[in-house]
Structures are given as C-alpha cells and as structure tokens.
C-alpha cells in the first residue's frame, strides 16, 4: 500500500521463480550439454567419406528406381499391408474388452488391476524388442510381425479407450443406470455412444502407426518391407531405398488423408 508508484519493472520469470535455482538449472544444462557433446566421438574422416553416399541418396530420391528390386518391393509391401490390416483388426477386437476392464468407473477392482497390468506390459516394451522375442518364438516371417503389432495395438488402444471411458459424462451413465439397465446395457447405451467416435478415430490412427511400424520390424526378421529396405541400404542401392521410402511416405499420407476424411464424416 505504499503511495509511491513503482519505477522499475522486470519481466516475471516464466517457470522457476527462485533465482539461484534457475541459474543452477541453466548452469547444469550447459555443463551437461558440454559433457554430452564432447562424449560424442565423431570420425571426421568417415564422415567425409560418407558425403558422396549422402549425395547419391539425394540423387536416388530425385530418380528413384522402382524396377531393380520390384519383386522384393512388391512382396515386402504385400506383407506389410496384410500385417497392418490383420494386426489392427485383431488388436482392436482384443483391446475393447481390455479397455472396458481397465476403466475404473465400470469395472470391479480385480478386473481393473488385471487389465491395467496387461496394458502396462504391452506398452512398456518397444515394438522392436517384442518383435525380437516373437521372432525367436514363432520363427521368421510376417506371422511374428502380426503378433508384435497386435500386441502393441492392444496396449495402445486399451489405454486410450479406458481413459476415454473414465472421462465420459457420468450423468448419462447415471440416467441409464436409473432405468434398471444391466451392465451390458449400460455399456451399450451409455458408454458406447459416447466413446465410439473417438474409438474409431484412434483405431484409424493406429492403422497408420501399424503400417509405419511394419516397415521397421522387418529389420529384425518379422516380415514386411523393412527387410527389403535393410538389404537395399546395406548394398548401398540408394535408388531402390529411395523408391521404397517414397512408397512408404505415400501410403502413410494416403492413410492420414483417408482417416481424416472418415473422422470428419463421423463427428
């Protein structure tokens, strides 16, 4: 309540109010950066050697070669796409019961814990690591890839579905409960209408992710275009590699455009 009008103004710090702490954090970040950067060993000679290869890759993008390996490319994409479709379908189908079970507002505690555990297990492991394990168990080929993608789809979708169900408008569920509806009727009349649009949205998004992943897990032998890509890169056939990458990008963009279109129509 001082009468004098303040004459100095300083911008209020954005995140951390305490001055010493702020400087300590800045200092720490700077030290870390210096240490981290200096611990990166760069072989400049190798880098220099690689430059022409980089240039060749850029050229490969300008003149992609679809023909040299077109049979491998065809089989690779066939595997990737079929894997994507089957794994997404199976994953969604299995994710729905798990997601229902993992929503605290409609499931009893034991079921909730089991379903949450499944989700945590499916999400904790990298796709690649899951693929390594499945390849070791089921042998090389797209079947292992299908299992990998289904498994990770369950974790992803069930978690989002459960969160959605926990976020629903409780009043609508209460109204349906008050009519004397059973659990299945509650799910069908109060939960499903509320979460369906987003479930479809997430499912479409997952198709997209699964396709992108299907292009990677081939590197560890789980089928798909990744194996073809790996071979092309290892042999420095950048024109073929560029062709494969361009097809991947095109399919992903197509998926995104298509799913965006469907989502707009649904909402």
């Amino acid at each position: 309540m001082s009468g004098a009008i303040a004459r100095h103004w300083r911008r209020k710090p954005l995140l951390i109010a305490s001055r010493p702490l702020r400087w300590a954090l800045y200092g720490g970040a700077l030290v870390y950066l210096a240490v981290a950067v200096s611990s990166v060993h760069v072989n400049w000679l190798r880098l220099y050697d690689g430059l022409p290869r980089g240039w060749r890759f850029v050229q490969g993008f300008l003149a992609p070669n679809f023909l040299a390996r077109w049979e491998d490319i065809l089989i690779g994409f066939q595997e990737s796409l079929t894997m994507t479709v089957t794994a997404t379908a199976v994953g969604i189908l299995l994710a729905i019961p798990v997601g229902l079970g993992a929503a605290r507002n409609i499931s009893p505690l034991p079921v909730y814990l089991v379903c949450r555990f499944i989700i945590a297990a499916a999400r904790a492991l990298q796709e690649i690591i899951v693929a390594i394990l499945f390849v070791a168990m089921f042998g090389f080929g797209p079947f292992a890839g299908f299992l990998t993608l289904s498994f990770t789809t369950i974790g992803f979708l069930a978690k989002l579905l459960a969160e959605d169900i926990e976020d629903i408008d409780e009043a609508q569920a209460e109204a349906i409960r008050a009519t004397g509806a059973g659990w299945w009727q509650l799910v069908n009349y109060a939960i499903q209408p509320q979460v369906m649009p987003r479930l479809i949205g997430i499912g479409l998004y997952r198709i997209d992710i699964n396709f992108r992943e299907s292009a990677v897990i081939g590197i560890v032998g789980a089928g798909g275009i990744g194996a073809t890509l790996n071979t092309a890169m290892e042999r420095y056939e950048y024109d073929s590699a560029a062709a494969i990458l361009m097809v991947i990008i095109a399919i992903v963009m197509l998926c995104e455009y298509g799913s965006g279109h469907i989502r707009r129509r649904l909402l």
């Binding site: 408008d169 009043a171 609508q172 209460e174 349906i176 008050a178 009349y189 209408p193 509320q194």
Partner: peptide, 12 residues
C-alpha cells in the same frame, strides 16, 4: 428419474 442437465445420451 428426471435429471438436472437432462442426462440424455447425446449421440443416440
């Protein structure tokens, strides 16, 4: 039962 915010299932 009749509710304050109507509590209709809006997407049905």
């Amino acid at each position: 039962m009749i509710f304050q915010e109507f509590a209709l299932v809006e997407r049905l």
